[in-house]
């Protein structure tokens, strides 16, 4: 008996690409929804930006502050959703058993899904930015683009870690898991200073803001885009993001693997819906 395609780095890379190609194909097939969500995001972003524009004083700075908030949140939400919902989505489509039967490591599974979400998220955000620029003037004269890119890359790693941890919930809770990840997303939106400085939050919310990677991601982007600060000045922002990513990605994969074993013991690794 011979084993066809024994495990190797190449087979893992091919398997990882399977998730990228699959998600791209699904995006094309659901193009109507993609367009609808895109237009909705533009509308909601503009609604927030126009609130800033309506304020009398220092409105250009406020518009840029809010614009960054809407764009960064749209990106983070896309990355978080695509990782955290990968289980509930496969349950709903009915393919979960086949994906989990495949001879690949769970890290390959996660990284393949993550790779697509980051590339797609960046492209979508760039398009959103271009669309918003048609409606409002954004002062980017001091922007450090390379610095912003570094924040996006390191910040994405930390958010992947959070997404992987959240993806465990639909594995544990067949029915309610997706609802729980939605709540996590809502809490991150509230406490991370997307549209306001975290200093306005009540005292008991401040610790939540301090442990949210989105807080540092937004702070880093604002410092590079509005103030044009260099990467070397971003230590207090990049370090927490880096540490979060380094801890949460392997921890998330480990927790996920434990949850998978538990799901196999209790018979929860099956389609739903």
């Amino acid at each position: 008996m011979t084993i066809v395609n024994p495990p190797s780095v190449m087979t893992e890379v091919r398997a990882s690409y399977a998730f990228v190609e699959r998600n791209w194909n699904l995006t094309k097939r659901y193009w109507g929804w993609e367009l609808a969500f895109f237009l909705y995001t533009i509308a909601s972003s503009l609604s927030v930006i126009y609130i800033g524009k309506a304020q009398g004083t220092n409105q250009d700075a406020l518009v840029l502050y809010l614009g960054i908030g809407t764009l960064v949140w749209a990106y983070l939400r896309a990355v978080f959703d695509s990782i955290s919902e990968m289980i509930s989505w496969e349950r709903w489509e009915g393919t979960i058993e086949y994906t989990f039967m495949a001879p690949i490591s769970r890290l390959t599974h996660m990284l393949g899904s993550a790779l697509f979400s980051i590339v797609y998220g960046v492209l979508r955000t760039a398009l959103l930015f271009a669309a918003l620029a048609l409606f409002v003037d954004l002062d980017l004269s001091r922007t450090n683009y390379w610095g912003a890119l570094v924040v996006v890359l390191i910040g994405s790693l930390s958010f992947l870690g959070v997404g992987i941890m959240a993806a465990v919930l639909p594995l544990w809770f067949t029915e309610r898991g997706a609802e729980m990840t939605f709540m996590i997303s809502a809490i991150l939106l509230l406490v991370s200073g997307v549209y306001y400085p975290i200093s306005v939050l009540p005292g008991w919310m401040q610790p939540l803001a301090r442990i949210s990677p989105a807080t540092y991601f937004l702070e880093g982007i604002r410092q590079t885009v509005i103030q044009g600060r260099s990467v070397l000045d971003l230590g207090p922002v990049l370090l927490p993001l880096l540490i979060t990513g380094i801890i949460l990605i392997p921890l998330g994969v480990w927790v996920f693997t434990q949850a998978e074993h538990w799901a196999k013991r209790t018979g929860r690794l099956k389609r739903n819906g």
Partner: peptide, 10 residues
């Protein structure tokens, strides 16, 4: 294509 790539087939 998705299924075969998961099994490492080029």
């Amino acid at each position: 294509m998705y299924a075969t790539r998961l099994y490492g087939i080029p």
